[in-house]
Design a protein around this nucleic acid. Structure first.
Length: 142
DNA sequence: GCCAACGTTGGC
DNA sequence: GCCAACGTTGGC
């Protein structure tokens, strides 16, 4: 299967990019997701998939790139076996943050889930969207 | 801090 | 299985 791309959303006060970076290569569970759509996307992820790290609230920007390092498994923060999550690790920060305003202003990105369904906390990203946002962020897409 | 949009829950 | 009520999210 070819590599898939995703977007992980978090509130900076709950889980920041620094928190993610501090976990190093060991990474961390992307736990706490209690939404079926988001969970289903995580169940479809494979080790090696890449994702954007997006901060809601004040920042409202993509600030870095993460990699999926473990496939979906039970969320350790829930007794309820409905909830699964993957593990991710930080790969690289964006030299330039790509803000929601920028994304909204870019006609090429008007179909991004982030624009269309801003509340979904784990989202798929197309390869084209991936390349465009990486370019805006000042990194070369893998 | 407000509120619209959305997802989930629970009664019927 | 429908749908009203409720809670949460996140942009503004």
């Amino acid at each position: 299967m070819t590599k898939q791309y995703w977007l992980f959303k978090t509130e900076p006060s709950t889980w920041s990019w620094q928190d993610q970076v501090a976990k190093g290569d060991a990474g961390e569970e992307w736990d706490g997701v209690r939404n079926y759509q988001a969970r289903n996307f995580m169940r479809n992820m494979a080790v090696g998939d890449l994702g954007f790290f997006y901060l809601s609230q004040r920042d409202k920007a993509v600030v870095g790139i993460v990699e999926v390092i473990a496939e979906a498994h039970p969320d350790s923060t829930s007794e309820d076996d409905r909830w699964d999550c993957v593990d991710i690790k930080a790969i690289a920060p964006f030299p330039v943050h790509v803000t929601l305003d920028q994304i909204k202003a870019d006609g090429r990105l008007s179909d991004m889930v982030l624009v269309k369904n801003s509340r979904l906390s784990v989202q798929p990203v197309t390869e084209e969207e991936w390349r465009i946002v990486c370019a805006l962020g000042g990194v070369t897409a893998e």
